[in-house]
Design a protein around this nucleic acid. Structure first.
Length: 400
DNA sequence: GCATGATCAGTTAAGTTTAG
DNA sequence: CTAAACTTAACTGATCATGC
């Protein structure tokens, strides 16, 4: 069997199930980073094998760490064995947070739970770790996941910030978390009930610094609003959007720095190089660079050659520019709000209820939003609410 | 020394109660 | 009804502990 190696993949992103994101809430900064790297390393062979290996140097490389404190690493890895991932597997298959009094927790549902890693072994410089079968199934094709960049995660210095980042990513498509009560917010941030009992401290020491750090180091922009009941801040709403500039920076610094160097060496300006990579994709540009490299004749003006090769897709190669593919997907997926309303109105009540089951399975927080706004799927006001937009996005009937 | 996590004291703002 | 007094929570500044 062919085993895919890390080097064969260029994008260092890990698909992380939202059940895992929530279950990681009490983990340390390093533990969370390691868990993501281990999943990234195992992912290509996740279904094929239960035991995966990674060298310590590879792990440190993916963590962007230079430490030699192996005791600390060992402790953090061991911590993963006591991290419990819990999710429901009943008809509704809701994902729950592993805290008993959580709103989503329902003792009538069937649920599964297991530790993140079922075993760990260190042989010299090689770490062997094992995922249980149920977890491998859950993680391999997660129905609702966030794509976490290992490069961005390595920049985080605070556990609260990385927790906020991962949780916000799950809400990126909706653009907002909706109004979360403080208790729910504390849970997702991993703030114990004994800590920061006064909002002023929670705000100043957890919320604000975490937002500041996420906005500084990540590819998303987070703002927050609070709602008071009487004089007490009782709800927090986080608004999340893409941060375009940083995505470009990330491409420049992380994935394509070699490619940029080559393009600049051939005489391209920084802006031109950046524009090509962002517009056409790294693989496509590399392919055109290879044309110059493999050319039997001397190319007098490589940049002019590249420019034309890129724009006219010279050599009829297999890879098409990403921009065109993305455009097709975009046009295919996009539906207007009116089209969604018409479609929704054409459904029977039974079909609507089934869809709600599907949507809450994909995005459990939908239940909380609906309960909070006191909206039911069969209500007439449902189609005019922001929940409807969220609902359509969850069902992938919008341009996500 | 610096970053981060945690807590406290004084001040300010806003809501509630009560005396006139 | 009104305004002063009271209560409560947020804001701000400061300090301490811990780990790197």
């Amino acid at each position: 069997m062919h085993v895919v190696t890390i080097q064969e993949r260029q994008d260092k992103y890990v698909k992380k199930h939202n059940a895992a994101i929530r279950s990681y809430s009490e983990m340390s900064l390093l533990g969370r980073k390691i868990a993501n790297v281990l999943l990234y390393n195992a992912y290509p062979n996740l279904t094929a094998q239960s035991i995966h290996t990674i060298s310590i140097s590879q792990l440190l490389n993916l963590l962007s760490l230079k430490t030699h404190d192996y005791q600390k690493l060992k402790h953090s890895i061991k911590q993963l064995m006591s991290t419990i991932i819990e999710w429901d597997v009943g008809k509704k298959e809701k994902i729950t947070i592993n805290i008993e009094d959580d709103k989503l927790f329902n003792s009538k549902e069937n649920w599964k739970a297991c530790t993140l890693l079922s075993s760990v072994q260190i042989n010299g410089t090689i770490i062997k770790y094992e995922y249980s079968e149920v977890l491998r199934e859950l993680f391999y094709q997660p129905s609702f996941y966030s794509k976490i960049s290992l490069c961005i995660q390595s920049k985080f210095r605070s556990a609260y910030a990385i927790s906020l980042y991962e949780n916000c990513l799950s809400y990126l498509n909706c653009g907002t978390t909706g109004w979360l009560d403080i208790v729910a917010f504390r849970k997702i941030m991993g703030v114990h009930s004994s800590q920061y009992q006064i909002f002023r401290d929670l705000n100043r020491r957890v919320l604000q610094p975490a937002i500041k750090e996420v906005n500084k180091v990540s590819n998303i922009e987070v703002t927050c609003e609070t709602k008071k009941i009487a004089r007490v801040v009782s709800y927090i709403k986080l608004c999340i959007s893409h941060k375009k500039v940083d995505v470009e920076k990330e491409i420049y610094h992380q994935n394509s720095s070699d490619l940029f160097e080559k393009l600049i060496n051939y005489g391209a300006s920084k802006n031109q190089a950046k524009s090509w990579v962002i517009t056409y994709g790294e693989i496509y540009i590399k392919e055109k660079l290879d044309l110059i490299k493999n050319s039997t004749i001397t190319i007098k003006n490589p940049i002019a050659f590249l420019n034309k090769a890129i724009k006219e897709n010279w050599s009829g190669l297999k890879i098409k520019p990403q921009v065109y593919e993305n455009k097709q997907v975009y046009e295919k997926q996009y539906l207007s709000q009116e089209e969604n309303i018409t479609w929704f109105k054409s459904l029977t009540d039974n079909e609507k209820i089934k869809l709600l089951d599907r949507a809450t399975f994909i995005f459990p927080m939908l239940t909380v939003h609906m309960e909070y706004q006191k909206i039911k799927i069969l209500d007439e006001k449902f189609i005019n609410s922001n929940i409807f937009t969220m609902f359509m996005q969850i069902l992938n009937r919008n341009n996500i």
